[in-house]
Design a protein around this nucleic acid. Structure first.
Lengths: 106, 106
DNA sequence: CACAATACTTCGTGATACGATGTATTACGA
DNA sequence: TCGTAATACATCGTATCACGAAGTATTGTG
């Protein structure tokens, strides 16, 4: 997918990836892979941004001797996902503007 | 609309705005306003980018003593619009990932 | 012991949207 | 006629951001 196209979707995507159960970096990347590839550096940037915006919380836990950071969506995070559905309507109207056919096939 | 969300759509939007007839900066902004607000500085940046990518050509013309730059979509520009429709499918699948309901309402 | 996979982190860079500001002309009301 | 808004394009600086590169550390696995 186009680099720019991803921008607005990335944050909500990550929120969506943890909305049903807490998850950690590596797992999130795996889960999102079929829909959108993203690098580790990108993901951790996003996670920090979402944490700063209080859309998720972090909890460190040991798993097999290795440290893992589990990310948990907050109420504000869920609200953000609902807001996205509203924004989506604007995107759709924009899509229709872009793909409208007038004298395209004349 | 969310700033980030617009990113990927902006370029194709501008192409879509001139696809049926040549247009100029001020007019493009007016045409797009109902769908997406964008500032002049943003538009001219985009127009230059699209010109560099040869997705449109520019032609200067005088209109009422004032200089106007008319932008004309190229074949490559139309191709870009068609490509967008394909990319859109990926966006839709991403949208479905984001808004999927699992144990959301439990 | 070497090497891949897991897991997280930091740094630097290039792309980009946009506000602010500037220039120049036309149109129009006071 | 004077000022102001609208039209039209341009430039600069800034903040945001995705990402590649590289690094640290641990757990398997051959």
């Amino acid at each position: 997918m186009d680099n720019q196209m991803k921008r607005g979707l990335l944050d909500v995507c990550v929120l969506a990836a943890i909305k049903d159960q807490d998850s950690y970096g590596y797992q999130i990347i795996k889960d999102m892979k079929p829909y959108m590839a993203l690098s580790e550096s990108t993901l951790y940037t996003i996670l920090k941004r979402l944490e700063a915006a209080e859309l998720l919380t972090v909890r460190s836990a040991e798993h097999g001797g290795r440290l893992r950071k589990y990310y948990h969506i907050t109420d504000a995070g869920r609200r953000r996902l609902r807001e996205f559905k509203v924004e989506w309507r604007e995107i759709i109207s924009l899509y229709q503007f872009i793909t409208r056919e007038e004298d395209d096939n004349v």
